[in-house]
């Protein structure tokens, strides 16, 4: 099935036309539009993005059962992958989660929702959970990987530990979706519900791909250099 994956000779604009959700990964590559007719290879070289990482992310976002082979994995530069993950953390916290919460606030206001207070509490608790999760990665896991790359002593910590403790950020999103779809009173405007839910679904999708990048790609790459 490799025949229909994205490749470096394709035009980036065509990638977006095929899967608009790729727009959500561009900020994490610090990539602006103005794509013209340029190919993946040209755009990546111009913006100093690793072509293999860019293709990996785009393929992962687009083809559900895509699983990169060892050859593809070997070409992913760890430093670039960590930078990408860090950028997405920032984007998720500053834009995506904030947007979902704003949408839910709008929704609560639109119908003076009786249980609005507890709904907001749920959202804020989730935001806090995400912050803690990302902080651990940025303050413990990524520095550990950097010391490995720099050939420094790393102590007892191993990447396996990260894999074991990688907490589940989708469970709360799943619950929120269930509540919004099933139990909002009929007074709530469908437009506001729709806006909140669509952003929630989009964010949940991105987060699941982000988790695959960490659990399947990052861990596999680090295990190779730990040996």
């Amino acid at each position: 099935m490799n025949h229909n994956l994205f490749s470096e000779k394709m035009k980036v604009a065509d990638l977006v036309l095929t899967n608009y959700r790729l727009l959500f990964v561009f900020p994490s590559f610090n990539l602006n539009l103005d794509l013209g007719e340029r190919t993946v290879k040209q755009i990546c070289e111009k913006n100093r993005i690793s072509t293999s990482l860019f293709l990996l992310v785009c393929n992962l976002y687009t083809f559900n059962d895509y699983c990169p082979n060892i050859h593809t994995l070997a070409q992913i530069p760890l430093t670039d992958l960590m930078r990408y993950l860090k950028n997405s953390h920032k984007d998720y916290l500053e834009n995506r989660i904030t947007k979902v919460i704003t949408r839910i606030l709008d929704l609560i206001d639109s119908c003076c929702l009786k249980n609005g207070k507890i709904l907001m509490k749920f959202c804020e608790k989730y935001r806090q959970e995400v912050i803690t999760h990302f902080e651990y990665e940025e303050q413990v896991v990524f520095p550990y990987i950097q010391s490995l790359l720099d050939g420094e002593k790393t102590g007892k910590y191993k990447i396996k530990e990260y894999g074991r403790n990688h907490s589940d950020l989708d469970a709360a999103l799943n619950d929120l979706k269930n509540i919004l779809i099933k139990y909002l009173p009929p007074e709530c405007s469908i437009e506001k519900c729709r806006d909140a839910l669509i952003d929630l679904f989009l964010f949940e999708f991105d987060l699941s791909k982000h988790t695959s990048l960490e659990e399947q790609i990052l861990i596999a790459l680090v295990e190779r250099i730990e040996k």
Binding site: I118, L119, F122, A172, D175, N178, Y183, L184
Partner: peptide, 25 residues
């Protein structure tokens, strides 16, 4: 039955289904 997994989610469920009021929490 509910599709809800977390304790926080179940708390939401209970309030939205009037099994508990948000002031009780």
């Amino acid at each position: 039955k509910t599709g809800i997994k977390t304790v926080a989610g179940l708390t939401l469920y209970a309030t939205f289904n009037n099994l508990i009021s948000q002031e009780d929490l």
